[in-house]
């Protein structure tokens, strides 16, 4: 029941997205413009600064992710479907999981484009350890989306939600960003610093577990009127 509800919510969001592709395109374009702006700040005399790529990648993911999070729930609010979703005789937490999976999938698509692009544009050996980088990016994305989905959901009814989401989300995801950036730059060293990258992945994984647990726990009282 739980898994089915979550997958149904994911399927619904996916169907809407496939038809309009609105969120995907805006997120991708926004991530690209982020990278462009960073290239102005972090390239000196044609050579990118050392380690800048790790930060650029993660900041682009975080900014683009905020945009995507805001949009997924804006859509529900706009067509007054959130109430219908919450009225469904299904566990509330499953709705949260479905929504979160949607954000994760969307960000994964954006990252699949961002990682090679950042590696190319900033001469960074990002793909030297593809499996570890994938694990790191996946763990970071889940951590970011788990907090983000909860905050975006609870801000749906709040005033000035567009301003509020980044203000609440960025301080809260600071540890995710630190672990992501540090882990990525450990992987970018030559030779790659595998032990510390694994340490950061482990830290991210434990963050994911804690964030998900609290989010699943608080979603029910938060979404009850």
């Amino acid at each position: 029941m739980f898994t089915r509800t979550a997958l149904l919510v994911l399927k619904k969001d996916f169907a809407i997205e496939v038809r309009s592709r609105e969120i995907l395109y805006t997120t991708l374009l926004f991530a690209l413009s982020c990278v462009l702006i960073f290239s102005i700040a972090f390239v000196k005399e044609g050579e990118p600064l050392l380690d800048a790529a790790a930060g650029i990648l993660w900041i682009a993911v975080e900014f683009a992710g905020t945009l995507a999070l805001g949009k997924t729930f804006e859509r529900e609010r706009y067509s007054e479907t959130l109430r219908a979703l919450l009225l469904a005789p299904a566990p509330r937490a499953a709705i949260y999981v479905g929504k979160m999976l949607g954000v994760v999938v969307l960000l994964a698509v954006a990252e699949a484009l961002l990682v090679p692009l950042v590696a190319l544009l900033f001469h960074a050996p990002l793909l030297a350890q593809p499996l570890l980088l994938m694990a790191l990016v996946a763990a970071g994305t889940i951590g970011f989306s788990s907090v983000g989905t909860l905050f975006a959901a609870m801000l749906v009814r709040a005033r000035s939600r567009d301003v509020m989401l980044p203000i609440l989300l960025y301080p809260m995801t600071v540890p995710v960003m630190i672990a992501g950036v540090r882990g990525t730059s450990a992987l970018m060293q030559s030779p790659a610093d595998v032990p510390s990258a694994i340490m950061w992945i482990g830290l991210l994984a434990s963050m994911d577990v804690v964030f998900m647990t609290i989010a699943l726990w608080t979603f029910e009282p938060l979404m009850t009127e």
């Binding site: 907090v147 909860l150 905050f151 609870m154 801000l155 709040a158 609440l168 301080p171 809260m172 964030f211 609290i214 608080t218 009282p221 938060l222």
Partner: peptide, 10 residues
Amino acid sequence: KLGAALAVFG
């Protein structure tokens, strides 16, 4: 409630 969730997360 928003604030409470924020504080718990924090």
